[in-house]
């Protein structure tokens, strides 16, 4: 499957990925409203860690054998058989955050329900990748076996 890869050598720490992620996952889909006014405030699923010297934007790895899915106590977290996307069914999630406690990458955010990257399911390319000004995020399906 296509996944998002972060390249720390190219990341500018500008956090535009977070801005566009919030917008893409907001009710209004409007960048200003989503980032400034919307209630409840949308949560960015991608997070830039580090500083101006060295940084990178971390996103769900959509693991082949996801610990969050196995640990989910309600069956809300699933890995789509066709697309491989790991996503939260918000109707079933009770916000216990067991998924967060087992994700080895730190890619699940706290909210009333668990919040995580869904690779912008309905779009060809995730918003964070599309709007990264320095190609520090790429969306690709590498050939050969993944390590």
């Amino acid at each position: 499957m296509k996944r998002i890869y972060a390249i720390e050598e190219l990341c500018l720490n500008c956090r535009l990925c977070e801005v566009y992620c919030k917008s893409a996952h907001s009710q209004s889909k409007d960048i200003i409203k989503a980032n400034k006014y919307e209630e409840p405030a949308p949560v960015s699923r991608v997070t830039v860690y580090g500083d101006n010297f060295l940084s990178a934007a971390l996103n769900c790895r959509h693991c082949d054998d996801p610990k969050c899915v196995k640990a989910c106590i309600t069956g809300a977290m699933t890995k789509d058989k066709k697309t491989g996307i790991v996503y939260v069914n918000e109707d079933k999630c009770i916000g216990c955050m067991t998924c967060l406690a087992v994700c080895p990458y730190g890619c699940i955010k706290e909210g009333k329900k668990a919040v995580k990257c869904d690779l912008c399911r309905n779009d060809d390319e995730p918003a964070c990748v599309k709007n990264c000004p320095n190609h520090a995020l790429i969306y690709a399906e590498p050939g050969g076996e993944e390590k």
């Binding site: 720390e8 997070t47 860690y49 730190g106």
Partner: peptide, 20 residues
């Protein structure tokens, strides 16, 4: 966060150890 790890482990976590 991923920056508690050294470069090799970070590379694995961010890029799936791919040579990009």
């Amino acid at each position: 966060d991923p920056f508690i790890f050294g470069k090799a482990e970070r590379n694995k976590r961010m890029k799936g150890a791919l040579d990009l």
